[in-house]
Computed example of a mutant assay.
Amino acid sequence: MSQWAHDMFGQRASLVRECVAEALSVAADNAREAQEVARTDHLHPFGFTLMSRKFEALAEAFQDLGDVRIVKPGGSQHELVVLDGTLLFPFRYAKDRSGSVMSARIGDGRPSALVQALFNRFGPEPRMRQLALHDVAPHAVPVAEALGDLPDDTRLVLIAYAANAHAGLLDAWWGEAELLDRLGSLRWHHCEEIPLTQEAAALAQGDTAAAFDQGALPSPELNPRSAGPAPIPLWPEAAGGA
């Protein structure tokens, strides 16, 4: 475990990390199951299921631990986990491994009012001037007010993961970052990988297996030809020696 993780979660940092990995794996598996049941080539079932289950699975994973609060901000459909004064926020940063988490954006478009409010209230001290809430999205102000019952020293921990309907969960990271712009660009202050569960790791490994033409060529088995009858001549004169 890193010093950052120990500073965040104390002696149970390892347990917290395991719970996060398990929750993401469960959410991705549920989303893949929904996609299979839907029997459609469109990926909406996977995406919609994952959007909800990632929050629900996290809440389920931590519901029996002490010092845990499950909060549902006004205007949000999702419950958020606050553990020891740390708010966990999961988001999918990629659908494959073609990009780096360091260039991740939070969301596919403009960050939601909730996301902007979380960064403004609980994100790390920005290393550059951060846009005020009213500059980014005026409708984020009521959301920020709805989070007023959380202490001001609450810290926002991002959980970034890559997943798709074919392979499920590919990788996961957590850390702290600041929101840079209206497109959801991030500047990580700290980011480290979360080891996946064995099942998720095996599935992800299968999705990144080498292409057929990159593998070792098979060695065909050669069996000796058994002795058979003498070949029959094609022409009668060949048989008579004429």
Rank of each mutant, 00 (worst) to 15 (best):
C191S: 14
A177I: 01
L118E: 03
W235H: 14
E221R: 15
L88V: 06
A13Q: 07
T86M: 06
T40N: 12
P142S: 06
L158H: 08
Y93H: 11
A242G: 14
S185R: 13
L196N: 04
R32D: 05
A167Q: 07
R225Q: 15
R32W: 00
L169Y: 01
F91T: 12
A113T: 07
H190G: 04
V16Y: 02
P218Y: 08
D29T: 14
E237Y: 11
D207W: 10
I194W: 06
N164W: 01
A117F: 01
G107H: 10
A140Y: 03
A104N: 02
A210K: 14
M1H: 09
G10E: 05
S185C: 08
T154A: 05
E199F: 11
V82D: 01
A163K: 01
P224Q: 04
A209T: 15
I70H: 02
A137S: 14
A172N: 01
M8Q: 13
Q3E: 13
Q63I: 11
G215D: 09
P142E: 06
P111L: 00
R12K: 11
L15F: 03
P124M: 05
L217F: 08
A163Y: 01
G215P: 07
A146C: 10
G10H: 11
P138Q: 13
G206V: 05
G109P: 02
G148E: 11
V157D: 02
Q3K: 10
A200C: 10
T197G: 10
I70A: 00
P111R: 02
T154H: 03
L158A: 10
S52A: 09
R105N: 09
P236R: 06
D7N: 11
F122H: 06
D152P: 11
R110V: 10
S2A: 07
L217R: 15
E22W: 11
R69F: 03
S76W: 03
L83V: 05
D84H: 07
E60N: 11
L169K: 00
T40Q: 10
A200K: 02
G109D: 05
E221I: 15
P151R: 15
L169Q: 00
H190I: 08
A163I: 05
Q63M: 07
R225G: 06
E33Q: 12
H139T: 14
E193I: 09
K72T: 14
A238R: 14
A113R: 15
T208F: 07
L65N: 04
V143A: 01
Q35A: 09
A204H: 00
N223C: 06
